[in-house]
Design a protein around this nucleic acid. Structure first.
Lengths: 215, 215
DNA sequence: ACCTAAACGGAGTGCTCACTCCGCTTCTGC
DNA sequence: GCAGAAGCGGAGTGAGCACTCCGTTTAGGT
């Protein structure tokens, strides 16, 4: 008996190849058409049958999650780069921009993070990035560049809305989101901040809000 | 022969009653569940059969459009009220707020205007409101309160994004959109405005962008 | 070579919807 | 009242999709 790996039943070579092909196809298909592409289209693109695909990924959600995972590292790296920036403000905005650039490349990422559904994958990402984001915001608060009433719980709103613009502009004005983000970021600056009509979400509310979107 | 109305073939009394009941049911159903409610649910709620509903509204789109039309006047009134405000800035922001309040009441309105589909109905609304909005923006520009690089073609972004927040907050934090709008409006003020990374959409681009969303 | 567990493919299933068809019922003008 | 046009209901149709079943093929250890 060889060492008992947690869950690595060593796929047969053909199986492993197919798995990779499926992931590549899914990545491309999601990027091109959004997570709504029929599973069948992905199977075809990958040159495998439905059965094959479903044995590897028992659920469409699993497939989505696997594709997302590939962007996860880039996401964390973006946050770390932001923290590495000497200027807390450009560190913060640079992070936001970088994440949105990832959204451009990977439509699934946006659709999951901005939360139309697939809550499970989203939770995983969020857990990992949350502390970094919190620190990014704290830094910009201490520095006096970010308006003090902006809370970490407001971040989903930023991604949600910018993501919406990004999606709308796809194919017509691919960088329109940068303009929108410019407007919004000017609103986040400490400079001309005006009292807001209500407080941020509590963390529980935020979770509930994002969860409700799973459908 | 009585006067030839453009298209008023004088429905039979029962037909007219049913038509009204269908509209009422649709309004309620859309508000409660969004435009995705099955047509069947509306028919049931109205106490009529599918056949009846479809004879009156040959397409689900027609039904959506009819419901929207009911909010149209309120929409125009909001713009006129904004123009009546002596202060161009509060006139502008008051209009935006009022429109979003309409979105709260009438989920279909948002789903159509913010442009997930049903482009036809949207076009009708836009044609009617556009000149008023243009004037609202001009006034605030002349007054120096609205950042000069904000263009009328940016308005859809405002409604699109605020509407997104509104929808996300529904049932958890119904007034969350007001907070988001506060942030964004601070970004629209002339005060701390920073150069934007790209220009606004051309009108043609805007139309294309909104049209693409019809699916 | 050979044998068998693993892997494969794609037609089939079940579900949700928008939309249609048609035999029956009800207004309404004469 | 009574024709017959106008209206009605709701089972049925077709299309799109996620997901399953099972007879066939193949990798790879011996």
């Amino acid at each position: 008996m060889t060492t008992r790996e947690t869950t690595a039943p060593t796929l047969r070579r053909d199986a492993r190849e197919n798995r990779d092909r499926i992931l590549a196809a899914a990545r491309a298909a999601f990027a091109a058409e959004g997570v709504d592409v029929p599973v069948e289209a992905i199977a075809e693109r990958a040159g495998v049958g439905m059965g094959t695909l479903y044995r590897r990924f028992p659920t469409k959600d699993d497939l989505v999650q696997a594709v997302i995972e590939e962007s996860l590292d880039a996401f964390v790296v973006a946050a770390e780069e932001g923290l590495a920036d000497a200027d807390p403000w450009t560190g913060f905005t640079g992070f936001v921009e970088r994440v949105l650039e990832l959204h451009v490349e990977n439509r699934a990422l946006r659709e999951v993070l901005a939360g139309t559904e697939h809550g499970h994958a989203r939770d995983a990402v969020r857990r990992r990035v949350r502390p970094l984001v919190r620190r990014l915001i704290e830094r910009a608060h201490e520095d006096g560049s970010l308006r003090p009433d902006f809370a970490p719980e407001d971040m989903p709103l930023v991604f949600m809305t910018a993501g919406r613009v990004l999606e709308a502009g796809r194919g017509v004005a691919p960088d329109l989101w940068r303009r929108y983000l410019g407007l919004l970021l000017d609103g986040l600056r400490a400079g001309g901040a005006t009292p807001l009509p209500r407080g941020p979400l509590t963390r529980a509310q935020m979770n509930r809000l994002l969860d409700r979107e799973r459908r």
